[in-house]
Every structure is written in C-alpha cells, then in structure tokens.
Design a protein around this nucleic acid. Structure first.
Lengths: 211, 211
DNA sequence: CCCGTTTTGGCACGTTGCTGCCAACGCGGC
DNA sequence: GCCGCGTTGGCAGCAACGTGCCAAAACGGG
C-alpha cells in the first residue's frame, strides 16, 4: 500500500492498519510522546524478528513518565535511546527520515484522534530537523533520573503545602524559607511534572501518587 | 474508665480504645468530617444492637465525598442525616452534647494524628453551638446532589481545559464564553471540590477520577 | 584565609487568577 | 408589550503567582 504525500487518518486503529508495515521495515525510528501509552498500539513489539539489530530507536518523553512508578519501570525495559524534555512537544513519529506521523490535538471531545502521515520529502526533512533540535535539547534519561530522585526526596513537603490549599506566603513561612525560594521550589516541581499551571501540577502529582 | 475534662490522645487506635464505649451508649451523635475514612475506625458499625432506634446521627461532609463515585454510593448507605458544607470545618464529633472530640491538624509529617477529647460542659456547650451553626448553614445531601449532578454534566470540558495547562483566556476563547464567565465556572467547580487553590482542585479532581 | 561555586531571598515587575459590581441580554409568564 | 428573574460578560481592583536580577550568605576546596 502506498500513501500519498499527506494523509490524515482518524483513530489509532486506522493509523495502525495503514502504517504497521512501515514500522516493520524501518531501521531508524524516532518518536516523541507525552506518555507511554500514546503510541502503544502502533508501537511494534520489542523486535523479536531475527537479524535486524542495527535498528536505531530514539524516544523523547515528557518528565511525567518518571512520576508514575510503574511507567518509570516500564520505561527501563524499552530497547531504545530515551531522553526527557520539559518542552511542550507535538507527539510525533519519524520513520527512516522518510515518513513522519504527527498526532493531532487529542483535546476536544471524544472524537477519535487524528494523525497526519507525511511522506513528502521536503516536509519530512523539515520535521526531522525540528525533531533533531528537540532531541539535542532533551536530557538523557539517566541524567534526568538523578535530578529527579533528589527532587522526590524533598518534594513531599512542598506537595503537602500545595495540596493544603494555603497561599505561597503561608507555605514559605511554614518551611521557614523566603517567599522567593518557595516559589522557586514550586517552579522546579512544576517543571519536573511538566506542568504549566498549578491545576495541572496538582492533577499530575495526584496521578503519580505523590499525594 | 473516666476521662478528665480535656484529654489529648494520639492516633486513631488510642482514640478508639478510649472512646468506643461512649459511641456505644450515645443516642445523639453529630460529626463533621472531610471525607468518609476520617472517623472510619472509630465509627460504630451500623447499629445492629437491638432496641435503640431513637439514635440520632448527623453528619456533615465536604463536597469532595460526592466526587468519588464509590464514596458517593457508600454515603447513601449510612444511616444518618447527612449534609454537605463548602465551609472549611474542623473535623469534630459530638456525643450526646456531653463529649466533644476535635481532630488535630493532620498536616505536618507522618506523626499520628492527635485528637482532643473534651467533656468540660461549658466547652462542649460552646462547641455544640458552633456545630449547630455549621449544620444549619450546610445543605441537605439530596439538594446538594441535584446541583452536583448538573455540574458533573458540564464540568468535563472545564476540567479538560484546566488540565491542559492553558490560560483562562485561551480556555474561555475555546469555549466561546467570556473570561468572566469561564472564571465563574472554575470558581463553582473549585467550590464543589472544596478546593481553595487550583493545585488542590487539580489534585482532588484527579483523585475523584474526573480526569 | 581567599576564591569560585552554589543557594538564598529581597525587590521589582509582569502575568494570571479571583471577585464584586453592574449593565446588557435572554427567556418565560402574564 | 411589560415585568421579573436568571445568566452573561465587561470592568475594575486586588490578591496571588512567575521570574529575571542581583547582592548577601553559605559551602568547599586549595
């Protein structure tokens, strides 16, 4: 089956049906995802197929994946180069620098998510370059992990205070630190959670079982 | 066993040991709790003991209990008059207007929660009066439920937008409503969640499985 | 002790969120 | 049409949050 230069598909199943063969044959897969289950359906099982060991798989995730203990463990089982970025990044797959799949906004409503499959060379080229930039700016999983473990140690206090609903001022007083310092901590925490609002941070913290 | 006028006990177990007999004999129990499991250990099983059917049990909860589907159902099995308040209220039990038990701040650290058992008449009197005020200002479960069901219907949109991390402005645009109106909705939602900060709201919303 | 590095916290300023007030609008009932 | 009632949304003012900047303090070698 061939694909035209730009095709829009609706829903995971259709995407899978249309592109499974591409995943099979690809030797250079790069992917950016917000969480582990995003490309789950279309992600090929850890290559059991014989001789092709020169397959290169790169993945960029948001920090959130590290918060969930189970997904953090699962992450370590993936046979791929993994990096973490705090940037907002569109969920994307690149296959052999020849095909790009861009996920549409999952946002509104219950409608099936749309995916745009691109094979037009110029376009794919541009997307690749963007991905490479993101890849370079992302930090290695191990490195990120280290920073993260330390955060996990001192965060509970902050989380307690945040979820108590008190103001930053009160929280800072409680901790006996300056307002600026407290806010800095919160900012670090939010960045680690990949959250851009406190509501989001609260939701993710709870999701990760940190409360 | 007698209790002095004011006793502080540490931990649920000790509280239970000290006051179980009071619960047995009480015919007028009033209690305020943030959630269902607060007094769970000390709450007597639904009175299987024979003839005492003139027992009056009143409970005040925070709106949060309605969000969790399971606890909302559980709530309906409780044989008591139940009201809901959006006020912050100290967790409290009153027994026959003669003994008051005030829960301490659960807040800081992992230390066992403290409870203050009060039997000094003047004090208990005052506490009772405060509770009655709270009781009067609280709304009936059924009534609250009605308002709430409707909220549950239109809230998902708001929750999606909030947890997307976008600004109020963007969210309002998305919904096609004014900024003021959007914020009013958020305020209603937060009030329904009993949250006083957005972080808290996010945490509770997630906790209630609304995300 | 001195110096480089890191952390802290005050300050200022911009942004975002919260809410009372009120005029405008929409919608039934009469 | 007119009235009453609830909803909307602009505005204003304030509270809370986010962050760059920088000097002061704290640490850690050498």
């Amino acid at each position: 089956m061939t694909l035209s230069d730009v095709t829009v598909v609706r829903g995971d199943e259709e995407l899978f049906a249309r592109t499974a063969h591409l995943f099979e044959s690809a030797t250079d897969i790069a992917c950016a995802a917000d969480n582990l289950h995003t490309w789950a359906v279309s992600r090929p099982a850890p290559p059991p197929t014989g001789p092709v060991t020169d397959k290169r798989v790169r993945k960029i995730y948001r920090p959130g994946v590290l918060l969930n203990r189970t997904s953090a463990l699962e992450l370590r089982t993936i046979r791929a180069e993994i990096r973490i970025t705090t940037q907002e990044i569109n969920e994307t797959i690149l296959l052999d620098r020849r095909v790009a799949i861009l996920a549409g906004d999952p946002g509104t409503g219950t409608a099936a998510r749309t995916y745009t499959v691109v094979s037009k060379p110029e376009l794919v080229q541009g997307i690749c370059s963007l991905f490479e930039a993101a890849w370079r700016s992302a930090t290695d999983l191990a490195g990120f992990d280290a920073r993260f473990a330390e955060l996990r140690l001192q965060a509970p206090q902050i989380l307690d205070l945040l979820s108590s609903g008190c103001t930053d001022e009160a929280a800072a007083r409680t901790l006996g630190v300056g307002l600026r310092t407290y806010r800095r901590r919160v900012a670090e925490l939010m960045s680690a959670l990949g959250a851009s609002s406190r509501f989001q941070a609260g939701a993710r913290a709870r999701e990760a079982g940190l409360l």
